[in-house]
Design a protein around this nucleic acid. Structure first.
Lengths: 153, 153
DNA sequence: TATTGTTATACTCTATAACTATA
DNA sequence: TATAGTTATAGAGTATAACAATA
């Protein structure tokens, strides 16, 4: 039985994806790459990367959370979380407040400058989301989200 | 109406994902990160990264293809494709053959050493694929693949 | 002993700009 | 002029190991 000829992508101009065509993991990465590229195009300040926006959004939704919990939620190493928090703190958008109950850790909080960025980032990521969903019906988008959450949970 | 409390991830320990929970793009990235981590764990030689394995697999399936077509199919920049081909060529797994019809470009081919890696990589990526699909029914995996191809195409 | 966070280090990935060679 | 590929450069992301401070 012949492999179904799969033009995953017009840009591929008929390249055969071999065993990669059968790998959901590979397709996830390609879809994510496409979305990250769109998001980067939509973001005026190129230092505001997807990961850094995610960090800011997570602190916004969870004021006082710690770097460890941040790194676990985004599946980053602790050093990566340190650097991301450093980035926002240096720009006056995030604060580390000492936790009197556990002086090893910090509570993370947004400054007013950081809070002001949240709705902007929500809007930018909504735009990239629209170009993603444009290729799906509403029902398909709902189903895709459900399946992704099932994988991640 | 309150946002549905979404524990995307146990590791998040109840962190609220804020607007990220509504972004398929974010969920795609998280799912891909999980899969890439699993793939890296399953790969004995840590220099054999996901991207490099993809490059080898694509040349295996398309002997004689060029670096430009490779970069388009994997959505890499041309310099990134150059570096990936350099990597495999330095290790004796890939050859650049001059194309007599267009001496600007090379035809890419695997050496016997490169060919020997293809089934190994197919097996490694199949293992990571199994842990991904473990969380889905067969019908869900089929549907997820269909939706991802729709996004990528 | 274990945990939180930082620093040092190294490697991967990625892109843009400028370049050479060829078409 | 346009295309294929390379080099130079820089920045982003990532991880491990070793460390300090605290629990």
């Amino acid at each position: 039985m012949a492999r179904p000829t799969m033009a995953i992508d017009d840009a591929g101009q008929g390249l055969d994806y071999g065993f990669l065509a059968d790998r959901i993991g590979f397709l996830l990465r390609m879809a994510s790459v496409i979305n990250l590229a769109q998001l980067a195009r939509d973001t005026p300040d190129k230092a505001h990367t997807s990961q850094r926006m995610s960090v800011l959004a997570l602190v916004a939704a969870n004021p006082g959370t710690s770097q460890v919990r941040l790194s676990e939620a985004l599946r980053l190493s602790r050093p990566a979380a340190t650097l991301a928090v450093d980035f926002w703190q240096e720009r006056g958008c995030m604060e580390r407040r000492v936790d009197p109950d556990d002086r090893r850790s910090y509570g993370l909080f947004l400054t007013p400058a950081g809070e002001a960025l949240v709705p902007l980032f929500a809007e930018i990521s909504r735009e990239a989301e629209v170009s993603l969903r444009d290729r799906l019906t509403e029902a398909e988008a709902v189903e895709l989200r459900r399946l992704l959450v099932k994988i991640i949970d």
